[in-house]
Each structure stands twice: as C-alpha cells, then as structure tokens.
Simulated scan of single mutants.
Amino acid sequence: MLSDEFENAVNKALTADMVADKVDRLAITQESSLALTAVWACVRILSETVGILPIHLYRRTDTGRERQHGHPCNRILQTPNSFSTRFDLMHFLMISCTLWGNGYARIYRDKMYRPLRLKYYHPAKVEPVLTDSEELFYRLDSGEILPSSDMIHLKGLSTNGYKGKSPIAVHRDNLSLSVSAQKYGEMFFNQGGNMSGVFKYPSTLKPEAYERLKKDLLAQSIGVHKAHLPLLLEGGMTYERISIPPEDAQFIATRKFQKTEIATIYGVPPHMIADLERSTNNNIEHQAMEFVRYCLMPYLVRLEEEFNRKLLRHDEFEEYYYLFALNGLLRGDAKTRSEFYKNMNFVGAMSANEIRNLEDMNSYDGGDEYFVQMNMQTVKQAIDKNGSKKNQ
C-alpha cells in the first residue's frame, strides 16, 4: 500500500509541476515578433534606410530634368502633416509593410486637388476591397469607404494584387521555433543552468516525506543565483541527469540558423544583423550593393509609383515624377568613386560640378564645362584620315 501511495504522489507531482499536459502553440503576432532580435534588426534596417534616402520631385525638360523645390507635391513629402517629417512617413510605411504586409497613409486634398496632408493608419484599421467591376476601395474601421486615389498603399508580397501578405503571419511556424529556442534558453538559465534529471532513493518514501524532500530539492536548485551549488542529498539518494545538454541538442546552432532564416525572409544580408560568420572584408561591400538592388529597390519602386500615381494630378503625371536618390548607397568606397568620376570626366560624360554635386560639395564658376582628351577621335575620322593618306 505504501508503494501505491508513493506512486500516486509521484504521478500527481509529475503531472502538476514537471510535465506539461499539453503543448501550447506560441502565439506570434506582428507586435510580439519584435521581441526576436533578428526581426527587430531587419525591420529597423529596412525602415530606417528607406527613411534616410532623399526623394525629389523632377520635371522632364528637353535637355533632361530639373528639380522642383517649390512644387506642392514636393512639400507634401517633406512635411506630411503637422507632427512628422519625410523620415517619419517613410519609416511608418516601411514598418507597417515589413510587419503587416501593408502600409497606409490617407491623402487629404485642397480645392485644386493638391495633396494637403497625409494621415497615417494602422494596417489593422484598413481593409482593401476589390469590387466585381475591378474598382479598388479602402474600408476604414470607422466604416468610411475611400477611393483608391485617396490612400497611399505600400504593399508587400501579394497573391491577389491588391493586399500584401504579412511576413510574420506567413512564417509564424518558423518564428515560433525562434521563440521556443529563446524561451528554452531562458528556462535553462533560470533553473541555474542545471538540466532535469532523476533522484534515486534506495527505498520507498511516505507521501509527507516525499513532499518535503521535493520542496527542499527545488529550493536548493532553482534560480540563477543558485547555479552550480552542490545539492545536499540524504538517506543514500543519488542524482542522475537524463536530459541532453544544450550543446548536444544544437541549441546555439539552432539560434544561429533561425537568425539566418529571418534575414532570408526579409532579404537582408546576414552581416547587417550581426551575423558575420560567412562575411569577409572583400565581400561585404558587394553584399551591401546587393542589399540596395535586390532588397531595397522593390520597396523604393513601389513608393515612387504610388506617389506618382496618387500625389500628382492627371495633367502632371507625364511631366513630373518622384525619384529616390541612391548615390549615397551605391557609390562605393573613395578609391572606386575616384576612378569612376575620373573616367566619366575624361570622356565628357560628367562635368566637375556634377561630380562635386554627387559628393555634396559646392559648385564653382567654370565647373559646368565638359572636356575630352585631345588624342581621342571617332572611328569615322580615323577611317577618313587613313583613306586620304592612301589617295595621296
């Protein structure tokens, strides 16, 4: 009978404290995913990089293009409303897009149909609605319906063409593994860095003695401040570890792999979120340029086209356009830029003032002249000279 009582007590303790009776699925939301350092880093890098990029309004001319500083459509992006700046606008749209798959900003206009101000909307408060007649509207949580022309909509990867998918929702199972590994590490260190095991007793214990012994053992071993302290066992009791140590369970490798997986989801080079395992001084610069071309450019093109289509009036659409300035991100190191400018100047493709402008330097008188080397000639001139010599 004593063994039955002991067995019942053990089963009760096991089911109550040591073994979960069910496996709860971790709820990963857009907000809670930011607790993962890799998600936070990717979202921060993408949103802040787009936020720092200048965007200009240009007008097409017969000789090329010219900046439009005083145009209302240029000012609306520099001061979207009374409390934010261009950086804030881009930052908000990118954070919304990288977490929820969609970024929204409502356009308020004046009587001349010029954009007057922009109002930010949380992605959960806006729902795109496509009608049977292929017209797109936006339904706000207040019940108001807006036409597509009155809403800036930055969408991510989409399978229906009018609403982006949330990377967090699509990859929720993958992110759950990252959270599980993080919680596992937290539990491991909270338990003093000691893995679970069994205590072997040479005989049986009464339930009262078992409960007392269990309470004493847990009090001795649980907690970071009690890590690596020796256990005091009595009555011939011995301890045997039965769990796999973290290094054997590839705990560290799992966390590294998940960081790389999250970087892959967002298209961010791993070295930009502090994963330098496969990066060298020779390939980091090329990875940075690939980041601009293959990761940032899709977002920038979407923003440019959305601004062109919805901030400009129909009578301005062909004449004016928005364009992000990417020279600062793509120009490379000083030596590479110097060789590029030198070659462009030698063939007359760039003037000194154009080079100085790209380097944020003031222009000077006479710097707008174009020069070519005197010892260069066209192929036609070379053929004509050779032909005239033969005729002589």
Rank of each mutant, 00 (worst) to 15 (best):
A253Q: 15
P270V: 08
Y120T: 00
L36S: 03
F188W: 11
G197T: 06
A274L: 13
E247G: 00
S363V: 04
K259V: 13
Q220I: 07
L296D: 08
E48K: 12
R337E: 02
L118Q: 03
P207M: 13
E290A: 13
V129T: 08
L229P: 00
I262Y: 03
K12V: 01
L296R: 02
I76M: 11
S178R: 01
P128N: 09
S351T: 15
M237A: 15
E144R: 12
Y299M: 09
S203N: 12
L177D: 04
L213F: 14
K119N: 01
N282I: 11
L217A: 10
R106I: 06
T260D: 11
E359S: 04
Y341Q: 04
L329M: 10
G161A: 10
Y294M: 05
L205P: 07
N11W: 13
I383K: 12
S148T: 09
K183I: 07
G197S: 08
V301E: 11
N281W: 15
I52H: 06
G51K: 03
Q373L: 15
E186S: 12
L26V: 13
D132G: 14
G223S: 06
D62V: 04
G70T: 06
L232A: 13
L46M: 10
L218E: 15
A105Q: 02
L89D: 07
S96Q: 15
K206Q: 14
Y121N: 10
A13Q: 08
I222F: 11
I262T: 01
G156F: 08
M374T: 13
I55S: 05
V170M: 12
E31C: 00
D173Q: 12
F346Q: 11
N386G: 07
S351Y: 02
S3Q: 13
A349V: 08
A13P: 00
R114G: 01
E48Q: 15
T85I: 03
G197C: 06
H314Q: 12
V292W: 08
P246H: 02
E234F: 04
